[in-house]
Amino acid sequence: MVNPQHKFSVRNFNVHYDHFSALRNLNLEINANEIFTVIGPANSGKTTFLNSLNRLIDLVPASRCSGEILLDGIDIRAGMEVETLRRKVGIVFALPLPLPISIFENVVFGLRMQGVRDLRRLNQAVERSLRESYLWDEVKDRLSTPAMNLSGGQQQRLCTARILAGQPDVLLFDEPTSGLDPISTARIEETLLILKKKYTVVLVTNNVAQAARVGERTAFFLMGEMIEVSETGKMFTTPADTRTGDYITGKFG
């Protein structure tokens, strides 16, 4: 029943906001250690889907979910604490959102909340995760300065380091480069390609070319439904659905 290759299994999953149906009858699998990209126009349900994977969707007061999402075969609602889920499934938001504390404290925030006090462990985690997000060399001498002083691209990599510190399984990225310049974008994309060796990456993007560059498999969402999901290369050369083709070639969106 449970395929060990499947990190996430989404089954008959629906999300409603009040009477608005944001996501309908979603069924898909996300494999371990792949970059799974989600594309689609605005209001297609991409972000709702991403927020469902770590239950941030619960913060929207009027939201209701049905169906199930399994992480490593365990239901993320019935089978585990929400705090545990969010530690395993970290998220980087569209805008760089560092907390108004030092770089160091940003990175160890999650660990501190787990009750880790050992300074050696915290130091190690900071160095490891900042190296993994390619920020270490730029900030190693000013870890105690406010994170707000970093540039946008650096802040976004700090936000990546922040989730890496908790040693998650899955990294969710919600249009992480939408506010960045092309050079910072390229750096983030490089980082994604390296991170996927260790982690499962789910990338929501409104930049079709970005999906083509880094995605292994891609899903196309439209108005709350998943139109198709396939190997990224296949989707971009021979889409199964004409709407997918129209979107990719920029006929709408």
Binding site: L56, L59, E83, R86, F93, L97, F109, M113, Q114
Partner: peptide, 21 residues
């Protein structure tokens, strides 16, 4: 609002979020 969202997304509980963020 995003202080809360970020804190919760990092696995902090609701009270930890209020207390620390």
């Amino acid at each position: 609002k995003h202080f809360r969202t970020v804190s919760l997304s990092l696995g902090a509980s609701r009270w930890q979020t209020i207390r620390h963020s």
